[in-house]
Amino acid sequence: MRDLKRWAVALEVAALFALWELAISGLKLANPSFVPPPSAIWTAFTGMLADGSLPEHAWFSTQNAVAGFLLAVVVGVPCGLALGSSRLVSDVAGPPFWTAYAMPRIAFQPLLVLWLGFGAAPKILIIFLMAVFPIAINTMDGIRGVDPSLVRAARVYGAGRIQVFLKVQLWAALPLILTGIRMGVARAMVGIVVGEFIGGSQGLGYLIFRRSADFDLASALALTLLLVVIANVLMALVSLARRIAAPWYAEGVS
C-alpha cells in the first residue's frame, strides 16, 4: 500500500511534467520564453552546472542556510521549552514573542541589508527569523500538551521539578519539537530566497532574481525547482529522524 502510494505520487509528477512539455513544445499553447517547457528548464539547469555558476551560488546559500537554521534550532528549542514550561516566562516574554511572530519579517530584509551590509550576515539573520518561530512554537505546544497524568505519576514516584522536565516533559515534547524542526527547514528555504532579494550578488536567491530580470525564465525556474527538491529531501530526512528518535509517536502520520 505504501509502495503503491509512492508510485502514484511519482506518476503524478511525471504526468504533470509530460503535460507541461506537451502543452508548450507540442501544442505551442504559450510562448516558451515566458513559460519554458521542462526540457528547456533541464537544459538551463545542466548549463548552469557546467559553467560553474550554480555550484558557486549554491555553496554561498548553503552555508548561510546551515548557519541560520542551526541558530534557529539552538535558539528556538530552548525558547519554546521556556515558554512552554514556565508560566512566568510565558507571561513576561510571551507578548513580545507573539508580536515578533505576527510581524511581516520579509519586510525587514532591506532594513537588515542597510544595517548589516551586503555580506552573509543579513541573509543568515533572515533565514534564522523565518525558521525560529515554527521551531519555538511547536516546542512550546509540545511541552504544554504533556498529559498531566504523566506528570502526576512522575511526582508520585519521586520526581522533582527538574526530573519531571527531563524524564517526562522533554520526551513527551520530542515528536512535536521534530515537527517544528521540519517546518523550520521549509521556512529556511524560503529565507534563502527572501534574504538575497536586495543587496549582494551571490546565492541561489540572487541568481533567481537576476535570471528573471534577464528574462531567462528557464534558469529561474530550474533554480526554484531545485530549492523545492532540496526542501523535500531535507524534510524527509527530519521525518526519518523523528521515526528513529520517537518510534512510539503515532506511526504513519507524518
Binding site: L150, R152, A153, K167, L174
Partner: peptide, 16 residues
C-alpha cells in the same frame, strides 16, 4: 513519598 504508590485509572505509563 516512597511509602505511598498510586495506580491510575488511565495507567499513566510513559509511552516512550
Amino acid at each position: 513519598g516512597p511509602d505511598r504508590a498510586v495506580v491510575f485509572q488511565d495507567y499513566a505509563l510513559l509511552p516512550w
